[in-house]
Each structure stands twice: as C-alpha cells, then as structure tokens.
Computed example of a mutant assay.
Amino acid sequence: MLPYKELARMDKLVHEPARLSILTALSACTLAEFLFLQELTGLTKGNLSSHLAKLEKANLVVIDKHFVRKKIPQTTIRITADGRSAVERHWQQLASIHEAIRKQGAHVHLSESKSIQR
C-alpha cells in the first residue's frame, strides 16, 4: 500500500490535531487538571471540553469532576491504557509512514538523477 493512502486510513479520532495534542500531553503525565491542559494545548474551554467528551466516550480518557475544600470545582483528566496505546500507535504509524515516504522520495530522486546522467 502506498504510504499516502495509509495517512488517510489513520484513526481520525486520535489524528485530529487538538485530540492528538491532548492525548500526547496526557501520555506524558499521570493526570492533568483541566486548566493546565487548556493552557498546555492552547484550546478554549469549550473546545477542550468538546474534544475531551469525545475522547471520554471512546474510553481514551477518564474525567473526574470534584470539589476541593467543598466549594472549589476541580476537573482532572487522565489517559486510559487504551488511550495510551492509541496515541503511541498513532505516533508509530506516523513515523513509519514518514520513513516510507522519505525512502520513496529518495528512490524517485535517485531514479531521476540516473536518467539525467545518461
């Protein structure tokens, strides 16, 4: 299969840039507070909430809403084992596709230079 076709077949839930950013950030820590994750990703509250809801529905993250000192709301998010596997697989697929494209490009480039030399 051509590597370009593989790009189109990647998991769109994970591949979407905001969700990829969220999952990648969460894969680097045990859990993150909502506001920290918002700052880290640069997403608006509404946008982050929307993407987190999709990731939670797919069982890639767990969201915990609770109160600190009985009155301060706090939302924490952690990546699940499925989420960690999905984001790791995604980055591995991207690296593999990128390498295949680079090799293909080098092959095309070598073929072109041989035809020019003749």
Rank of each mutant, 00 (worst) to 15 (best):
K71G: 01
F67K: 06
K114G: 00
I79Q: 01
A100F: 09
A106T: 07
A106S: 08
I79R: 06
R89E: 08
V62I: 05
T80Y: 02
K57Y: 15
D82G: 00
R89K: 11
K5A: 12
S49P: 02
L2C: 04
T24G: 12
F36I: 08
I22F: 09
Q104E: 10
A53M: 10
L20E: 14
I72Q: 00
H66M: 15
L55P: 04
V87H: 12
A32R: 09
K71E: 00
G83K: 05
A95K: 06
V62S: 05
R118P: 00
E99C: 11
G46F: 05
A81K: 11
R9Y: 06
E33F: 04
R69Y: 03
V87A: 13
G42N: 05
L20T: 11
M1F: 12
V61P: 01
N47T: 08
H98K: 06
A100V: 04
R118F: 02
V68H: 02
D64A: 00
K70Q: 13
V68Q: 00
Q38I: 04
G83Y: 01
L26G: 10
H109K: 14
T24Y: 10
G42Q: 03
K70D: 14
V61S: 01
L43W: 11
E33M: 00
L40A: 12
P73T: 11
